[in-house]
Design a protein around this nucleic acid. Structure first.
Lengths: 237, 237
DNA sequence: CGAGCCGTTGAGTTCATTCAAACAGGGTGG
DNA sequence: CCACCCTGTTTGAATGAACTCAACGGCTCG
């Protein structure tokens, strides 16, 4: 499954690190450690077997980190856009992996040991890493807040707002979703049908408008965000 | 609200840090930075105003980190037991805070700047911090997995299994919950009634037994964990 | 003893899910 | 070019689950 990149690792990974450790005056940078991986939509970037060996960072495209629960359901733990950093933290008993979400996704895989070694010797790198880990932590907390929402409409609305903050979008609130309905469903712990219904519902309420399944326009961001408080929808409709 | 600890901070916080920075030969340890806070059940440890200034670590007792959503619902982001580390990551627009869950809870508050400075000069401390951040990340991911479960029974079951792994419990699977039903509800994004019903349901199924509201005994851990797959409950009941 | 909090149980409603079907778009091959 | 398939999306109907509102029992503390 993931064998394609392991030779690269064996060739340029730990060995190179050990070699260079003896020359601290050589400015080693994060990118020197990166094992580049290119994948098309749906292809596995890394699988369950070596998930605690690497850290991952999306360079272009987007990826999803997920866990397959014993029941067969897939829970997406994180949606990775360019510059996002991610690593699994040893949840045992599940199959977990990282897939590309769009074609030509480029992910950098950093061997953890080597990254640690580099961080020890270069505090600028250490700062960069901790900033990225903090970013991952932030996305994690925000997903908890979304999953903690009560209704599907609120979850989808909050998802759209969060995504809008992360992807390129014009001032008019137009954005292109990187994900399919199935990915949204597995991210929000909903069924596909419910996601679809929530989107049409939001459209009918005038909060968003859809131009094709992926092209969303946020018409009323505050309305999306504070749908929680909305008992106003009963009055307004 | 949180004014009680600010004088301590002003007295021994950044000032002390700046002073000692000039003596790198002095072995500065994490505990030197800690602002100790003692709180009883329900008392606030830190509130919304200074949540991005500190990192927190529970030394004894337990605490809850939560966010109050616009609608008034409280989502608990993390349940902190001794040695657990936590920090908010800048979710704007919400009120968030940390409360003690049991009496005599002792929490160490570390000023972030000073912690960073210390980590830069002492790689052992940096390792310790990154290990603790990783622990927080792990709990975060596990909560996502719990929230991603479909039924309330699964959520509560998974919660019990996770808690069992973290609190002291004898070999017979007996443990004492640190939390009330309300806290469990806000942690799992369920209503209190649903939590209560799920617990009695699990009892009827023979997976747990209750000796008082807080005293739980896990009778069948695998059954709790893999309730996901269980269509067996229809046959068995 | 009363007040207040916590926990449980019941009844009715709301909401998400499942199962099912239909539709749209992109690709391939005839 | 059209037929066809496949994937992704949407909508409908019926079931099932969690929520709200409500009431009650237990417990602690003043």
């Amino acid at each position: 499954m993931t064998g394609a990149i392991r030779p690269i690792h064996a060739r340029g990974g730990h060995h190179l690190v050990q070699q260079r450790r003896n020359y601290p005056h050589v400015a080693r940078r994060l990118e020197d450690l990166a094992i580049p991986v290119f994948r098309n939509r749906g292809e596995e970037i890394h699988g369950s077997d070596c998930s605690d060996v690497y850290w991952y960072r999306v360079l272009s495209g987007s990826a999803r980190c997920y866990v397959v629960l014993p029941g067969g359901r897939r829970q997406i733990l994180d949606l990775l856009l360019p510059d996002d950093f991610f690593g699994f933290t040893g949840d045992e008993g599940h199959f977990y992996g990282i897939d590309a979400v769009v074609d030509n996704t480029n992910v950098a895989c950093y061997p953890r040991e080597a990254l640690q070694t580099l961080a020890d010797s270069d505090s600028a790198v250490a700062h960069e890493i901790s900033a990225m880990v903090l970013g991952a932590m932030s996305r994690s907390q925000q997903l908890i807040l979304i999953l903690g929402r009560t209704t599907a409409r609120e979850k989808v609305g909050a998802f759209l707002v969060k995504i809008m903050q992360r992807v390129v979008n014009d001032d008019a609130g137009r954005l292109v979703l990187p994900t399919s309905r199935y990915d949204i469903a597995d991210y929000l712990a909903l069924s596909v049908e419910t996601v679809s219904r929530a989107l049409t519902d939001l459209t009918h309420r005038g909060l968003i408008s859809l131009a094709g399944p992926r092209r969303v326009r946020i018409l009323n961001r505050c309305g999306l965000d504070e749908q929680l408080t909305s008992d106003s929808d009963r009055q307004g409709d």
